[in-house]
Every structure is written in C-alpha cells, then in structure tokens.
Amino acid sequence: MSASTERSDLVNQLKQVQDWGQQQASHWEKKQSELTRTIQQTESDISQLTKRLEELRAQQTDFEQQGQKREGDIAKRMRQAISVGLESAAQTLDTRNLLLQKQRKIRQNRVENVLMEPKFQERIAEFRQFQQTKEQLDQLPMSYRQAILQHHQTVRKELEPIFMAAEQPLPKTDKSPKCIGIIASIDPDFVQPEAMAVLLPVPFSIYTEPNSGEDSLHQVLTFRCVGAITAALRKIGLTDVSINFGELKGYLSIQVWLGGKKLNGDIRQSISLEFQQLRDYASELQSVRLGMEVTWLDPELLDDGENP
C-alpha cells in the first residue's frame, strides 16, 4: 500500500468509534423496537385480563346475590316446615286425644264389669256407706270409731280386685306410634342465654281459658311440659326465674327470662333429660303411643321473617 492511501491513526480511531456508534445505534434501535412491541402486547393482555376480571367480579356479585337469596329461600322454607310440623303435631294431638278418651273408657268399663259382680255388691254398699259417713266419725266414741275403721279395712281388702282394676295403667292402643315435634329456642346462645322459649303445638287458649273438666291430651301434654321445664330449670339452679306464657302463631309459647342468671349446668341437656322422662313415664302418652322430640332452632326462624 502506498503512503498516500494510508490513513492516520487518528482517522482510524475515529472511524472505529463511528462504526461502534452505528452498531450501538442499530442495537438499541432493535431493543427499543422489541420493548415497544412487548409493551403493546402487555397492554393488550392487561386490557383482556381487566375485561376478564370485570366479568369474574360481576359473576362473583351475582353468586353473592344468589347466595343471599338462597339463604332467604332456606329460611323461608324452614319457616314453612315449622308451620307444617306444628300443624301436623296439632292434628296428631286431636286424633290421639280421641284415642285417649277411648282408652280411658276401656279401663272404666273393665272396672265397672268387676263392680257388677254379685259377690262384691254387699261390700260395695258398705264401702259407699262408709264414704258418706266418714266425716262424722270424729263425733263417735273412740271404741265405735275403731270398730268401724277396722271393719272398713276388712271391706276394703275384700274389694281389692276392684281397686287394683281401677289403679291399672291406661291400656295401650294398638295404633301405630306417632311422634310430635316441640320447638325450643335459646337467645342469643347457649353460653350466656338471655331467654328461652318452648313452643308447644297446642292452642294458646289452654293457658287463657282453663276449663274444669276432664283433661284432654292437649292439656295433659301441656301440664307435663310445663312441669318438665320447671324441673329442668331447678336442676341447673334457676329457682328465681320468671316463667311466662305467650302466644306464637296461635300456639302456646312457654317463655323463660334467664338474663343475668348463673346456670349450674347445660340448659339444653337438662331440658332434654326431663322431656325424655316425660316421654318414658307419662301414662297418658304411653297409652296412645305418642312420643315427642324437642328440636332446638334459631329464634329468628320463629318470627314471621318479614323483618331482615
């Protein structure tokens, strides 16, 4: 190479820098272009995801609304089930009440058949005479009184078959057993209860209009439930609580105010045990093969559900 074509080191150095600069520009231009494409792609993705997110949120809101509606529907259907259950129990009580009257009559007829037996007639007359005059016994001399009482004991002993027949438990029906539901409720919870209500499937008039005749099955059941609740409360140390009787849906509600009282036991268990005893021992219920079960429900289910 001739000396005229030779380039100075200065030019060469500058040329190299110029070449490097062009390479760098090309490189960063390419990077910039890639980044722009990536940003555009990401913005597009975000737009699609945002749209998808909005769709999902709308779906979520819809599900929540459906969930709330479903809870409302469940509560509504529960209230309907309670009404149907109470009506059914009330009807069962009506039919089993007729049965109870029949069972009482069967026992009475058995006793009256024994009463009719000729061998007892003389002693029955003596027994009746004693019943009519026993209040005047005190006016008689001691020796007379003792003799009469001794004779009465003999008469009573001879009439023992009649008394045994009268004291027999009510005969059991051959109808199939039936079980009625009783609703109990604690407000607000079992840990620190403020109030308890027990709803019986009997008309409220049993409380407001007590009669003075033979007790119906409705009355027997009510008296026994009132007794069972009283005994259950005493067993957990609640001796000074106020028991009130109210009307709910036409039925009798036994309400106990517990606010601030100390409970020495589980109120649910205590009630359960007393009702179990009632079920197992009450002659009238056994006679007509009537059982019962207590179901504990949220107190909100016992209102009419119109106020959220």
């Binding site: 006793v111 007590p210 007790d215 009355q219 008296f223 009132v226 007794g227």
Partner: peptide, 26 residues
Amino acid sequence: YSDLFQYFSLSEAAAQLDIHPFDIAR
C-alpha cells in the same frame, strides 16, 4: 265407677283450689 273412686283431673283440682292448672303442674 265415679261413685266409688274419686279421681279428679288436674284441671278439676285447679278449679277446686281456685288456682291456674299450670301452677299445680309447676
């Protein structure tokens, strides 16, 4: 039967005693 045996229902007893039958049950 009723001549010989004097049984009273809880309601009848309550009426005799001039008290509410629920109070007797309690």
